[in-house]
Design a binder for these strands. Structure first.
Lengths: 344, 344
DNA sequence: CTGAAAGCGCTTACAG
DNA sequence: CTGAAAGCGCTTACAG
């Protein structure tokens, strides 16, 4: 068990000062070539690597990014993490991930934990509960301390910071329009209870598309699902009545659920019922029939979020404390429609 | 922009020494009550929180766990992370996650990066490439430095450390047996090229189940898939010949693929073809028909892995360097069969 | 060309 | 009861 070697040990071993070792390893020309090479050879032999923690303390930056997301077992979020990780690694950053489990308290706790020096900046997506409460003090606080925050997907207008989002309303509009273009007239909306920002915007897009196309808006065709495992009867009743010939689901889980119910009832998708879903994931790709979706490019969201954060981090170094007004940007990532079997 | 407050600032403000502040905040009875309360009140008011990095450096432990996995966009691994995170948080640890992308080089890089003081111990699952190469020097090195490693799922016998696995062979055996119990005679195996340890074990279980039941082993019924997007013809040909009436797939992606091909050809699942898959995930649950699977309880694997690691971390503190032989354990997590529509 | 000193933010054994 | 000192592992401005 050979413990990691430190500058101190190398110094003692080689009978020089710690400063000399440090400078040699950083290739300072202050140090004579002979000594420098000797130290470097020795360090290499013992696999010397500087201690990250010591560097962090000294430099007052950790070269790590904190990510806080509601859920990791969720294709979209995993995808975003992938995107962040990619850019982070390219720039010599690590990522430390905390899950809020959609709980306000966990989100606060995790942020406080990470904010105490462990990371240089945050990339986060709000928990449902946080959106519900509308309490963002923990985020304000972190920002006030000078730690940059980039929000993605589930963001809020109440916080001034960089944001990476998609245009939920417009994308929903496009999805519904595509159904209309295929001649569907009675389009239902399968949505959640609406305190989550994105759910609301998607509903808005749906409503607008109907209106712009002169289609009647029918309150009864807005189906709010609280619990997926428990919505079969409601949906079955509506299907029974042939109340609609197409459905726009705000997520793929809802989409596959209605497809399965329809299947059981002998209703054919897409012939009798066209289905389109928001958020492209694993389910849509492998469902039978495969499901048309609006893709949220998670990788790209992650990439962009990481780039913005890192840029801010690195620029801070120079213009330290220049009191120009902070100018935050909101980047809108393009979505697009993937047409699959469910809309034929 | 009020930067985080430090002990030093509090000390200056209150005109006492840094030591006094530190002790007061840690409630040392060395300090007089009056001073202690005064300091505490002040600290509270300014939201003082100790700097994690400084603590890490001082204590020579970071209270964070490094996780290295091949892929995060993969239900099983996300699930394990969830399990780890849960236990970690309960014990005041954070997790820092790195992805190897199934690349040996990235795995090595990430390990070296984290090993330089950023974390106290590893939980990891080997990348495919690492398993292929059989090169584990990076892991040995970390262990030699005294940093505990817990491996899960994709492990190797070449490294002595704690492990959390399932019994792949036995579980595969069980899955195949269940098909036999339902009267299936010609059972195909849908598998990968076999350098990944678990793939091999699952194949062994398949073979053994056939043998124990006196069923003929037919080389032609072992279908090795290199690329899922590209296997349709092979499978279709075999299906055409009615070469088999059941299939055991080593993952759910293969299972859903064969179901879709069968569906196209008018072959009924489960009537004409029963399908069972290894690893329960999102796809199996929402496929049509839903797919019977062997579940790998990722949450539990994560829980157990985290518990083992933390226990080792905390026990190290006491018996520091007691040179008793390290005794490593391998925990086998129970799997079980979830019967769904695909095996009726 | 080399090294002692100060410092990043903290803790703790030791003096007083 | 309070504080100065040493130290975790490093870097760098400053002496010599």
């Amino acid at each position: 068990m050979k413990k990691k070697v430190t500058l101190k040990q190398i110094a003692r071993e080689l009978d020089v000062s710690i400063s000399t070792v440090s400078k040699s390893l950083r290739n300072s020309l202050e140090i004579g070539e002979e000594t420098r090479l000797k130290v470097q050879a020795f360090a290499k032999f013992y696999h010397y690597k500087p201690n990250n923690i010591a560097l962090s303390l000294k430099n007052r930056k950790t070269k790590t990014i904190g990510i806080i997301i509601p859920e990791i077992v969720h294709y979209f979020f995993s995808t975003v993490i992938n995107g962040i990780e990619q850019i982070a690694n390219e720039n010599g950053y690590s990522v430390i991930i905390c899950l809020s489990d959609d709980s306000f308290d966990k989100e606060v706790l995790n942020m406080e934990m990470l904010a105490n020096g462990s990371i240089d900046g945050f990339i986060m997506s709000l928990s449902k509960e946080t959106q519900q409460k509308g309490d963002f003090h923990h985020i304000t606080e972190v920002i006030n301390q000078g730690m940059p925050v980039v929000m993605f997907d589930r963001v809020t207008n109440d916080i001034l910071c960089d944001k990476v989002i998609i245009n939920d309303e417009l994308s929903a509009y496009g999805a519904v329009q595509s159904l209309i273009d295929k001649g569907r007239k009675k389009i239902a909306l399968l949505t959640t209870v609406d305190y989550v920002s994105v759910g609301k915007f998607r509903t808005d897009g749906y409503t607008k598309a109907l209106r712009d196309n002169g289609l009647a808006f029918d309150e009864n065709l807005i189906i709010k699902i609280e619990n997926v495992d428990n919505c079969e009867i409601t949906i079955a009743t509506l299907l029974e009545d042939k109340a609609f010939d197409a459905v726009f689901a705000v997520n793929e889980l809802f989409a596959v659920t209605i497809i399965k119910i329809a299947h059981k009832m002998g209703i054919k998708v897409p012939e009798d019922l066209a289905v389109i879903a928001f958020t492209d994931g694993i389910i849509s790709k492998y469902s039978t029939p495969t499901i048309s979706t609006v893709t949220q490019n998670g990788i790209e969201m992650g990439n962009v979020a990481a780039k913005i954060l890192i840029e801010r981090l690195e620029s801070e170094e120079k213009e330290l404390e220049e009191y120009e007004e902070e100018i935050y940007k909101t980047v809108v990532i393009e979505t697009h429609l993937i047409e699959r079997e469910s809309t034929n």
